Computed example of a mutant assay.
Amino acid sequence: MKKAVLWDMDGTLVDSEDIAVEALAFAMKEAGLAPPRDLKERVVGRSADEIYRYLVETFGLRADPGEWEERKHHHYFRAAGALRGYEDAIRSWRRLDAAGVRQAVVSNSDRAIVDVNLRAAGLVRPGLITVARNDVLYGKPHPEGYLRAAYLLGVEPHECLIVEDSASGAAAAHAAGIETVFVPHSHSAAPEGVRPLSSMQQLEEQVLALA
């Protein structure tokens, strides 16, 4: 039985990736840039600061970092009413919580986005452990966020299981030395060494050693 489950947020617990990409595309158009058709594939899993650098280097973005984030947030929060948690993932979260399994959320999104998304998913509660991009020096694929979450939960990395949906998150998990699974609703193929779940029930069985 695993003592803790560390969850990615966007695309794993919350159906937010399309909203985030759409907000990014609107912001790019306002800045006079043409979003590529494969924008989602280019940015999913990346942190905001990494995406900013990518846009500066690849598309010639000239906006100040602070101004750019405000512009993106404006479009994102306008669409926040459409945010939803993935029902199967939220159900597994609640069942693991009821079984006494410690859980945390580790995201490449900043604090404002994390709070809005988890509120939309109905997961905000006192004492919830979350690690946003603002809370660490390095975002995914660096392992710092996941290692910090394990520390805050009071468990060792080998006692954890990470639930992810992106290659960047899987790389962070691998670097942290923590076993990782991919949610069945992931849009990305699970990298080598990461087991894709055929259902979220498999996660519950693995964590609770029911299988």
Rank of each mutant, 00 (worst) to 15 (best):
L61A: 05
G122M: 10
G45P: 10
P65L: 00
R133E: 04
E67W: 01
A31H: 11
R102K: 15
D18I: 02
A99Q: 04
D49N: 12
E41R: 15
V105Y: 06
N117R: 13
R102C: 07
R91K: 15
G60Q: 02
L128A: 00
S47A: 14
V21A: 04
A120V: 13
D135C: 07
E87F: 05
H74L: 15
N134E: 13
A63C: 05
A34G: 07
N117W: 01
I129D: 01
I129Q: 01
V56Y: 01
R119H: 06
A120T: 14
E87W: 08
G81V: 02
V44W: 05
L118V: 03
T130C: 02
A112P: 08
A79G: 05
W68E: 02
R78M: 13
L128P: 01
R91S: 13
A79N: 13
R78T: 14
G66R: 13
G45R: 10
S109I: 09
G100Y: 08
A99P: 04
G45A: 14
E17S: 03
A121P: 04
R133D: 03
S107P: 02
A23R: 04
A82N: 11
I113T: 11
P126G: 01
I90N: 06
L128V: 02
G127R: 03
D88S: 15
R133G: 03
R71E: 12
R95K: 14
G85Q: 08
R91C: 09
I129A: 01
V44R: 08
S47D: 07
A80H: 10
L123I: 09
S16N: 00
R91T: 13
E50P: 00
D15C: 00
G122E: 09
L61Q: 03
T130S: 01
